[in-house]
Amino acid sequence: MADTPQTPERLCEQCKHRSVPPTLGSKPRRYCSRSCVQRAYEARKTQRLLAAAVEQEKERQTRLMVAATVQLERERAERERLLAAQAAPAVEARGGKSREDAAAAGAKSREDGAGQQERPGKSREDAPAPRGARPKRVTDYLRGAPKMGW
């Protein structure tokens, strides 16, 4: 008797329980039955669909992040524009001078005795806040501003 090499028994790639019958042609079999072939096909199909859904969700999340970033940037630009518009009357009240020039002129006028009357542009809101009061925030200035409907 000649020693014939024995091939190890292969298990079904789908169910992993039953052995695969010997090949009938040139291509080795992978599954034990037609039902395992069908279940393997459905598993591959589900895996492809799941991978496509995950990829779509990643793209959707990226689009949402970009849209949110653009929205925040627009809101920031609008806040800066509103704050600049609110600061413009204060500059006009100083006669177009810088804060340092206006402060120096105010100190000189106080030395001369002028400026006893109330200065224009000053109101209760410009007065120093009482002790313990919180400082003004950007949102305090924006309360009266129109809503942005993007």
Rank of each mutant, 00 (worst) to 15 (best):
S109H: 08
A88K: 11
M65I: 04
E78I: 04
R110M: 11
A129P: 01
P120Y: 03
E73D: 14
R30V: 05
Y141E: 03
A85V: 09
K147L: 14
E92R: 11
R48M: 13
E125Y: 13
A85N: 13
P22I: 11
L72P: 01
G144H: 11
A84E: 13
Q116G: 13
A114I: 03
H17N: 08
E75R: 09
P21S: 05
A68W: 06
P28N: 05
K136R: 10
A87T: 06
R74A: 14
P28G: 02
R10V: 07
M1P: 07
L11Q: 03
A102R: 04
R48E: 09
R99E: 05
K16T: 06
T139M: 10
M65Y: 05
R10F: 04
G115L: 03
P120W: 01
Q71P: 00
E100C: 03
D101S: 08
T139D: 15
S109G: 09
A145N: 00
V70W: 10
G95E: 09
T46N: 12
P128K: 06
S98N: 06
R18Q: 10
Q14E: 05
D140F: 03
V54H: 14
A77P: 02
Q116T: 10
K45L: 08
A40T: 01
S109C: 12
L64S: 01
Q47W: 06
A52E: 08
E13C: 05
A93F: 02
K97C: 08
P128R: 08
T62G: 00
R134M: 06
A93Q: 00
D101W: 02
E125K: 12
Q86L: 15
K136M: 04
Q6T: 14
G132A: 10
Y141L: 11
K58M: 11
P89Q: 07
Q14K: 07
Q61S: 13
S98F: 07
P21F: 02
R10K: 10
Q14M: 01
P89G: 10
R18V: 00
Q117G: 14
K122P: 03
V138H: 03
A52W: 02
P5K: 08
V138I: 15
E100A: 09
D3C: 05
E125N: 12
R60F: 10
L82D: 00
K16G: 04
R119G: 15
E55M: 05
R44P: 00
R76H: 14
G132R: 01
S26T: 12
T62Y: 08
A90W: 02
S33M: 04
T4I: 10
D101I: 07
A85Y: 07
Y41V: 06
A40W: 02
G121C: 08
T7N: 08
P5A: 09
K122W: 09
E78Y: 14
Q71E: 13
E57R: 14
A84Q: 14
A127M: 12
P5L: 02
K122I: 13
Q61Y: 03
K147Q: 15
K147T: 15
E75H: 12
C32L: 01
R124A: 15
P120F: 00
R94L: 06
E80Q: 15
R137Y: 05
K58Y: 07
R18A: 07
G132E: 02
R81V: 00
A103Y: 08
